[in-house]
Simulated assay, not measured.
Amino acid sequence: MSKTVPFGFEDIAPHEKTERVGAVFRSVARRYDIMNDVMSFGQHRLWKDLFVGRVLPRAGESILDLAGGTGDIAFRMARSGAEVVVSDINPDMLAVGRERAARRGLDHLRWVEANAETLTPFADSAFDAVTIAFGIRNVTDIPAALRAIHRVLKFGGRFYCLEFSQISLPLVADIYRGYSRRVVPGAGALIARDRASYKYLVESIERFPDQDAFSAMIRDAGFGQVRAQPLLGGLVVIHSGWKS
């Protein structure tokens, strides 16, 4: 791991990123889903539906959803009858998810506070699938997290990741960059009363590796059959790989 890692447009020490990302999500936890609607014009709901459709959870499967604190992905997968464990490093996000699950009567989900870089609460070969949606770019040591995911998957288990990426069309990319840099932090200040956190979230998207580079990282962690499905010209990508 390098001596510095990106935090938005800054390069900082790894331990500092972990602390500062934690502060971001403590700040935005209660209004996170509202801001997702604002940032994506509600499209994040469609992306998540498509994502879960790709995962294809089945009754009786054991699935780990990482960085899943507010429950958006877990709630969708639970409809299949799969046994879903929601893991997040941030207890404030998990608290929001538990409250949302209780309102929906979803009392069979498990909620576990864990660091994605180690996944120490979980045994080797414990899950049929591991998912993470819009969370991998906030991990301090992404290669370590990918190796940990590989460890906890069963032989033949599948990994699915939904994440922002780089738009391939230059004009569209310029328009989106202008929107995200100017509008999203302002909306964060107005709705979530936190401009700085949403400025970081926008910058973190721009610093995240493009789909080819991230696919290479997944392969380096030991996964086979690695694929990337870009949506909206690459704004969002569904990455997948299998443990073989």
Rank of each mutant, 00 (worst) to 15 (best):
R54Y: 12
A74I: 11
E16Q: 14
I218D: 01
E61C: 01
E19H: 07
G97E: 07
A173V: 05
W242Q: 15
G156H: 12
Q225G: 12
F122I: 11
S204W: 05
G178N: 13
F214C: 08
A187Y: 08
L106C: 07
T18L: 10
E206S: 10
D65W: 08
I63Y: 05
L190A: 14
A148M: 06
L109D: 06
P170W: 03
D72L: 05
D210K: 07
L232S: 15
A13K: 15
P6G: 02
I136Y: 09
R193K: 14
V236T: 06
V130N: 01
V139S: 08
V38K: 02
P121A: 13
G178Y: 10
A196K: 08
Y179T: 01
R20I: 03
S27I: 00
T120Q: 15
I136A: 09
I205D: 00
L190K: 09
R195N: 05
A221Q: 02
I136S: 08
G135R: 01
T140A: 12
E83L: 13
H150Q: 03
F25D: 07
L231C: 07
A221K: 00
A145Q: 04
M217R: 15
I205Y: 04
H15P: 00
F122S: 10
D11Y: 11
E10M: 12
D194R: 03
S27R: 14
A173I: 02
D107L: 11
S165C: 08
G53D: 15
G97R: 06
R219A: 13
F127S: 03
A148R: 01
A59Q: 13
D107G: 13
Q229D: 13
L232D: 14
L119F: 04
V183L: 14
F208M: 00
V130L: 01
A114Y: 06
S125V: 07
R30E: 15
E61W: 01
S215Y: 00
H15W: 07
L201K: 06
R182K: 08
L153H: 14
R219E: 15
V52C: 08
V96M: 02
H150K: 02
V96R: 04
R103E: 07
D92E: 14
F208N: 01
L190T: 13
G53E: 15
V5Y: 02
R182G: 03
R76Q: 14
A213M: 07
R54G: 05
L231M: 15
S180L: 12
G234L: 11
S165R: 11
F75R: 03
S215H: 08
M217A: 13
R30M: 11
P230G: 05
R219I: 10
G222E: 04
G234P: 01
A189C: 04
V139A: 05
R227K: 07
R177H: 14
D88M: 08
V226T: 05
G188Y: 02
H239C: 04
A129M: 09
D37P: 00
Q43K: 14
V55G: 05
